[in-house]
Design a protein around this nucleic acid. Structure first.
Length: 489
RNA sequence: CGGGGCGUAGCGUAGCCUGGUAUCGCGCCUGCUUUGGGAGCAGGAGGCCGUCGGUUCAAAUCCGGCCGCCCCGACCA
């Protein structure tokens, strides 16, 4: 089977789909809109989970687990929240099947008294629970995260980027004061930023969503926005300051130090398996996946090259030695001494899978005491002495991690333009895409109009945005700052 | 839900217009030779041509219904 994939230039979305399938990250499933995450794809997600989980734990959060099902009545308690999610909820109405002449059918006598919603997010069930957990200021802050699956019945799906069921983490915290809750919201936004930039080598813009793009039920939604290689923006994570909206809806109060009863302040925040899609679209090329070492299931693949068993044995002595040196440095190594494929096949395969560094060791290396070192991102080969290989590779991996970030950042910078008139605005979005920095009058009406006419939305108002007098690109009304417009995933 | 495309071996496909024994490549099995960029040769296995119905002596091919998937758009992380 030829595993060559279509080029990005030819058809970007086909490139993406083929890459996901051929690199063995995921498969389509028997259920429309749902995917099977295959071991290699899941391994990447597991590395993401571990890194994020450590960061959450280091900032005082604990994991817990809440039910998949949410009573329908819970959902209707927060008005904006229901409205935001009502259109995409899967609903469980019955709890039994039975045999019939037509085969297995739903047993109509087994109807649930109250329908259960399959969680699209867990605010409601969690806040209903928190009511029982919080009585006094001593119970606060309550800092909880859960790793879970959620279901949102989307009209159109795309592997990792938008599937009907997806995996994520959702943090839900309760605080005594508004200020504390806002601080938490921003602390998490910083964690997401650090994760995206350090681990994924993916530069992001931190910002605030406009009213239009805000989470249903939030007072403020903060986000990190990344730019993909095709010039489209991707929201990589969100952190919400929920104010007292859910506390009001679920009557969650605490007694403060003065013995007075107050509503608690809340946050919620999440990132999902969508990040795997973001990772793919940020770094990969026409030969396949390119993974940043810190998230790659294997940082190094070692391919021995040999003619016969005897030679393999000799080469494997060197391979084992190198493997143990690398492993001692904490590097994740895979050795592929399999006889079923030729070295050439393996080279292509591990390039497709994005393994950052490949070491090839053959008879010539035995003679010369060298190793062929190949780096996936730049497709460069060099011969390096076996002596001192571990520090060399260690250094190379961190160079790759940094270089991927630099490259992605350079791309984003060159794809970010300031625009001051609507004609140019449309032209840029049409031809080039990318982030367009433009003045906006702050109204939802203008935002909607622009969206209708150009398909571009306001991705965010960047944090610490430079204040600058100007006129709205659409209405001409005065504006104090530029916001980021882009077409988005 | 609208528009487009597709359904033939595990995967990718030809054949369909103009009906008559189902094509090719990859993969798989056996053997030998190979192995530093997706190895070569020889032999072999594998098909209710998505599904239901119609037309016909005869249907992968023509006609109709249904089902499924992918892509583009509206909705959204």
């Amino acid at each position: 089977m030829s595993k060559a994939i279509v080029s990005r230039e030819q058809d970007y979305s086909q490139w993406y789909n083929e890459l996901v399938i051929k690199a063995g990250l995921a498969d389509y499933s028997a259920v429309k809109g749902c995917m099977v995450i295959k071991p290699y794809g899941f391994a990447i997600w597991e590395r993401m989970q571990r890194a994020l989980d450590d960061m959450f734990k280091n900032t005082g959060h604990s994991n817990a687990y809440f039910p998949l099902f949410i009573p329908k009545s819970f959902f209707s308690k927060e008005a904006a929240h229901v409205e935001g999610f009502a259109k995409e909820c899967a609903v469980v109405t019955h709890y039994r099947l039975k045999n019939s002449p037509e085969g297995i059918v739903v047993d109509e006598t087994a109807k649930l008294e109250e329908e259960l919603i399959i969680r699209p997010t867990s605010e409601t069930i969690i806040w209903n629970t928190y009511r029982g957990w919080i009585q006094s200021y001593r119970d606060l802050p309550l800092l909880i995260n859960q790793w879970a699956n959620v279901v949102r019945w989307e009209m159109r799906t795309r592997l990792f980027l938008r599937t009907t069921e997806f995996l994520w983490q959702e943090g839900h915290t309760a605080h005594a004061t508004s200020q504390e809750a806002v601080e938490e919201t921003l602390r998490i936004l910083d964690i997401y930023t650090e994760f995206a930039e350090k681990w994924m080598s993916m530069p992001v813009v931190k910002g605030v969503k406009t009213a239009n793009e805000r989470f249903a039920g939030a007072v403020d939604t903060y986000c990190i926005e990344a730019l993909m290689q095709d010039g489209k923006a991707l929201q990589a994570g969100t952190s919400h300051f929920l104010g007292q909206n859910f506390a009001k809806a679920f009557d969650v109060k605490f007694l403060n130090k003065e013995g007075k009863s107050e509503l608690v302040w809340a946050t919620s925040w999440g990132v999902s398996t969508r990040l795997v899609g973001a990772l793919i679209m940020t770094h990969s090329d026409d030969d396949g996946l390119v993974l940043p070492p810190m998230l790659a299931p294997h940082e190094v693949i070692i391919v021995p090259i040999y003619r016969d068993e005897e030679q393999l044995k000799k080469i494997m002595e060197v391979v084992s030695q190198i493997n143990s040196e690398l492993t001692k440095q904490g590097i994740r190594v895979k050795i592929d001494a399999d006889d079923k494929h030729s070295p050439g096949w393996k080279f292509a395969e591990y390039e497709l899978k994005g393994v950052p560094v490949r070491l090839a060791i053959g008879p010539k290396d035995l003679e010369k005491g060298t190793v062929e070192v190949y780096r996936r991102d730049l497709k460069q080969k060099q011969f390096v002495p076996q002596d001192g290989i571990a520090p060399h590779v260690k250094n190379l991996l961190s160079q790759i991690q940094q270089s991927l970030y630099n490259k992605a950042l350079a791309f984003r910078e060159q794809s970010t333009v300031k625009v001051d008139d609507y004609t140019t605005f449309k032209e840029v979005l049409d031809k080039k895409g990318g982030f367009v920095l433009a003045h906006w009058d702050g109204t939802t009406e203008t935002e909607e109009k622009i969206k209708e006419e150009t398909k571009a939305t306001i991705r965010c108002i960047p944090m610490d945005n430079q204040q600058e007098e100007g006129n709205c690109i659409y209405s001409g009304k005065p504006s104090k700052q530029r916001v980021i417009f882009a077409k988005a995933y």
